[in-house]
Structure formats: C-alpha cells, structure tokens
Design a protein around this nucleic acid. Sequence first.
DNA 1: TCAATACCTAAGTGAATGCTTAAGTGATTT
DNA 2: AAATCACTTAAGCATTCACTTAGGTATTGA
Lengths: 106, 106
Amino acid sequence: MFQALADPTRRRMIERLSRGSASVSELAEPFKMSLPAIVQHLQVLEQSGLVTTQKVGRVRTCTIDTGALSMAEKWINDRRIGWEHRLDRLGAFLDALPSGLDKPAK
Amino acid sequence: MFQALADPTRRRMIERLSRGSASVSELAEPFKMSLPAIVQHLQVLEQSGLVTTQKVGRVRTCTIDTGALSMAEKWINDRRIGWEHRLDRLGAFLDALPSGLDKPAK
DNA sequence: TCAATACCTAAGTGAATGCTTAAGTGATTT
DNA sequence: AAATCACTTAAGCATTCACTTAGGTATTGA
C-alpha cells in the first residue's frame, strides 16, 4: 500500500479521486502520459486496495477506498504515538531519577 | 517520503526506531542482509526526513523524526477527510431533493 | 451496420532499486 | 603500535519500475 502511494502520479490520482469518483479517461486527463500508463497505475492502486473500480458498459468508474487509507494512516500513527509515549516514559523516568546520575544508553 | 516508506525493510527499521533510538549495527541486527545494505536504506530514510542521525565517536545513532511521520499522516488524512466530506455533501444534496425523483429511500 | 469511443493487453526499453563483495576510514582497545 | 570495531565508500549486478508503441475487445451512437 505504501508502495502504491510511493509514486507521485498515483498520489495525484488519489488526490483527484478524493474529490470524487472518475472514469479512467477523466483520471488520465491531467497527465501527459499515455492511457495505458494510467491504467497500469490504476491497477497498482486497485491491487493495493486504495481504489475500487466497477465497469458499466464501456466506462470504468474509479472510487477511493478510505478504509485502506485509514490503515496506512493507522500504521504511521502507531509508530508516531509509540515513539512519543516512549519519550513520555523516558521523561518520567528521568524526572524520577535522583540527581547526579548519567543518562542510560540504548 | 512515501517512497521511503514503500520498502518493507525500511518500515521494519522505522518500527524498530519507534521503540527507541539505535546504532547502525543495532538497527541491522534483526536483518539477514549486509551492513552496507542497511546503511543504504538508512540514507533513504534520512533523506526523506523520517530519521535523523548523529555520529559520536565511531557510532552513529539513529532517531525517528515524528514531524515527518505527521506530514505523511496528514496527507493521507486530508484525502480521506476530503472524500468523506464530499460524501456528506452528496448525502445532504440527495436529502434536499424534491421527492418524486429517483433517490435512495432513507 | 459501421465507425467511433473507452478501455485493455502485450511486448519492449531505459532508468531506478535493492542487494552484493571488496576495500577503505577513523575511533577505541590492548 | 597493532588490532579491533563501527561504520563508509565504491563498484557491479539482477530485478523491478515507469513508461512507451502497437494492436485488440467490447460498447454505443449515427
């Protein structure tokens, strides 16, 4: 999923889709590259679960899946919170130390 | 930055660092690969701003930068919220429609 | 029915990525 | 001073990536 978000083109596609569903050609419109290139990006986004698509007639409509976005968000948040809690605990620990001691490594 | 998070090895390194700072060799320890490979990943993480390092004597100590993590988190959150608000507005619009039109029953 | 539309598939290419091994560099220990 | 430790740097190599062009398949409007 982070792999899918790694490419700037795909991120712009996500931005576009966050403002509303779009067909493949609508998605492709702002980009200079060929349509197959867009379709390939779209496949990556779809496989990552970030985007779902459904075809009606000859038009494929693409929609963001915010659930998948939440997962990525959660992973980052967990690391950040983990680190910040650790800093809190360290702070409390240091506060509780009798003065005159050196800070522990690791 | 998403590019940096795209690699599983680098994500594991972030996970490790979210539990506390570490030297390069400590970071490398859980992995099968050679130390230079780890250093290369570390450089990517550093250039992305996700990790900061400082060298004292011959050991380099690596630390997470949660500010950078927050940025990635914010980007994702903005897209998600954007989409969800859009759904809200659509819902309100459909609710405000005069009856007799083709709209989902609520 | 004919042709345009909207998308899909395949094959190829050049550049970037993720490793490796080998050979340093500078700090610390003996 | 010599050996060890903790990285660093450099070069090379296989794979993956982000495209491209060329050709194909349903759908649909005239």
